[in-house]
Design a protein around this nucleic acid. Sequence first.
DNA 1: CCAATCTGTCACCGAGTGGTGATTAGCAAG
DNA 2: CTTGCTAATCACCACTCGGTGACAGATTGG
Lengths: 218, 218
Amino acid sequence: MAVANAAVKIPLEIPVVEKRVRNRAATEQAILDAAKRLLAEEGFQNFGINAVARGAGCDKQLIYRYYGGLNGLVEAIGTDLGSWVTDRIPDDTGGMFLLTYGDLMERLSMLFLDALRADPLMRRIVAWEVSESSEQVRRLSEARSKALAGWIERMRGSLVPPKGVDAQAVNAMIFAAIQHIVLASAVSDQCAGLALKNGKDWEKAATALKRLVRGVYG
Amino acid sequence: MAVANAAVKIPLEIPVVEKRVRNRAATEQAILDAAKRLLAEEGFQNFGINAVARGAGCDKQLIYRYYGGLNGLVEAIGTDLGSWVTDRIPDDTGGMFLLTYGDLMERLSMLFLDALRADPLMRRIVAWEVSESSEQVRRLSEARSKALAGWIERMRGSLVPPKGVDAQAVNAMIFAAIQHIVLASAVSDQCAGLALKNGKDWEKAATALKRLVRGVYG
DNA sequence: CCAATCTGTCACCGAGTGGTGATTAGCAAG
DNA sequence: CTTGCTAATCACCACTCGGTGACAGATTGG
């Protein structure tokens, strides 16, 4: 070992990559952005220290230093998630007057459906939630559901569900259905035999959803 | 290489472990069983050649030989899945007379809900379906949905959905909701704020589900 | 009895993982 | 210029992964 030909060390590194500046705040942000982007685009399968470091274009050591590892990084994502939700989902009624609880839930369903369809990161997190039971995903899930519950509460106003209907359970079903078909569509363009490719397919789905809501809430 | 000190070869192997019999069929079955068990218990995260080989107590080389690798093994699982579905879900009406399409869908919902709750393997596969888009999971998904569609068709008999309702889309929503709450419950004991721990919780969920079904189909 | 075949085992490969300690590079104050 | 701080990198660790080629022992057919 350690034999001859030790005069290698070819430093052919072409420093085309712009010199990494010495800026902690910017690096932290780059790491966070890379993590979110990676999670949204690749999913939680290949989500790891090395992948994030590669995506951020920095050494993984910095992730340990600045976030205390992957867990801390995920936690930081979760913290962002609150504002994330309220950014993506409109907080007004869209100019409609919501007279009944049924009106409200129909509108909320549509908003949530569209928001989830348009948000890859959120989709990945939901998929993660139903696939793995770890501390990481627990925190993410908590942040997400908290933000969502707050949003619903704000939208609800003074409307109350009809008597004799377990609104909490029914709403859970509706939101579960929305989450599942959006997840399924993102993977296989269909769900339980229902195609979910083009806008026409989604209109059918939305109509069915509204019909379900109207069926229970009138 | 291949130098001196070749007289080692200490055969201190204590053959306590029962001699592995030379039986291809049994080994194949052991591998298949281990794969299904592993998938059901650990999920698709740590599902790999090495893990299956460990679980089956044999060398991974045999998995390559007998199944042509993980893909072939998954395919074999998928083949099993057909009978699997029809084994776990009752094929009769449970002594009820299903007079209307609403009766039918209510009953199917409950059967599917219970079957999914009782079947860890199926749950993992569903979770896999909404999390990853690979050839492996595509085959599994196909086998599952085919078996499911066949079951529904058999149960349907001559009943037809009410006019003016897109039964396919509505049913997709209902089944999506079921799948999602069962997945969520298996991971976090709740879904969208609705607790899903004890039998009482599940009764509430079932009631809400039935209410949704009855709302659209009367 | 020998040779071919089949079952099962072992050792190894390259690549990638999470994680840690030591080191270098840039900047500012003294 | 020297000193000290810190952002950033490098080198390495032990481990796991999927995958392959070679080999040993049993079984079977000629």
